[in-house]
Amino acid sequence: MKTLVWVEHDNASLKDATLATVTAASKLGEVHLLVAGSGCRAVAEAAAQIAGVGKVHLADNAAYEHGLAENAAPLIADLMGHHDAFLAPATTTGKNIAPRVAALLDVMQISDIISVEGEKTFTRPIYAGNAIATVESSDAKLVITVRGTAFEKAAATGGSAAIEDVAGPGDAGLSSFVGAEIAKSERPELTSAKIIVSGGRALKDGPTFEEYIMPLADKLGAAVGASRAAVDSGYVPNDYQVGQTGKIVAPEVYIAVGISGAIQHLAGMKDSKTIIAINKDEDAPIFQVADIGLVADLFNAVPELTGKL
C-alpha cells in the first residue's frame, strides 16, 4: 500500500506531530510525504531525512502558505490518484483538511486512530475516550487522522528521500487568510512536552494562575496547560486547554493543580505516563487516575514545591 502523509509545518520548520503520523503510515505500507506551503523547501529537505520515508512531494505555491483546506484538499485529492491512503495528524490543521479530502474522494474518514490493527482495521476513541471502537473500512482508499500521542515518533533523521515538485490546482478562490494570533512562548509546546503543569478552576483568576503555575512550570522546564473551566473563566487563552475538545497530551509527567478531573479533562491527559495531582478535595475524581496524589491547599503546596525543587 502507498500512503501519503500530510506534513505539519509553519513554512520554516517541521512540526513533531508529523513524526507519529509517519509511524502510523509505515504500518500500512510505503510512506510518501506531502509538504504544501510557500517558500517551504527547507521543510521538504527536513522531511526527506525522516527515517523510512520513500518520497517527498513538494507543493510550493502562495495558495498553500496557510494550509487553507479549500486549496489543500484538491491538491491532495489529485495526489490520491496514485496513493492508497492519506494520513494527517489529528491537529486542528489535519482535522480541518482531511474530511474535505475524504468527501472529494467519496470516502468515509477514520478519525483520530490510536492503533493500526490491519490493512483496513483501526481503533479509535469514541464518547470522549469512554469507549474504544474497532472499525473496518470498506472504501477503496483510506483517509485517516492520527492521534499523535498513540504512536511512537519516527526518527527525524536517517532517511534520504527524493523531493519531487508537484504543481497542484492552486488557489480555489473561495477563502483567504486574514491573520493569526499565535502565542509566542519560551516554554515547550503542550503536545510535545515531556512535563506539563496544568491548572484548574481553583486558581481563581489570570494573575493567580500566572503567580502559582508559571514558576513551577519554569522550574521543571514544563509546558503549561489548563482545564476547560480555567480557560472558560479567562485565566489563560484557549490554546492551553487540555481535554476532549482541547489538546490531547501524553507527557512523561502531568501535574494537575487544582483540577477536579471532569471526564472531559481526563479524556485529554489520561495516557500520560505519570499523573500527579494536587487538590484540597480528597474525593476529587482526579485522584482516581493519579499515580501520586497530594491532598493539600495548592496556595501553600505549590510555592513550597517550587521552592524545594
Binding site: 470516502v107 489520561k270 500527579i276
Partner: peptide
C-alpha cells in the same frame, strides 16, 4: 455505512496510585 464497527470496548482502566503526606514526600518522588 462504509465503516463496520467490529467491536466496542472499555478503555484501559488507570489504577489510582498512592497519596503522599506532604510536599517533601512529593519532592522525593519527583
Amino acid at each position: 455505512p462504509r465503516l463496520k464497527t467490529l467491536k466496542v470496548s472499555e478503555p484501559p482502566v488507570r489504577q489510582a496510585g498512592i497519596k503522599v503526606e506532604d510536599v517533601d514526600a512529593l519532592v522525593a518522588k519527583l
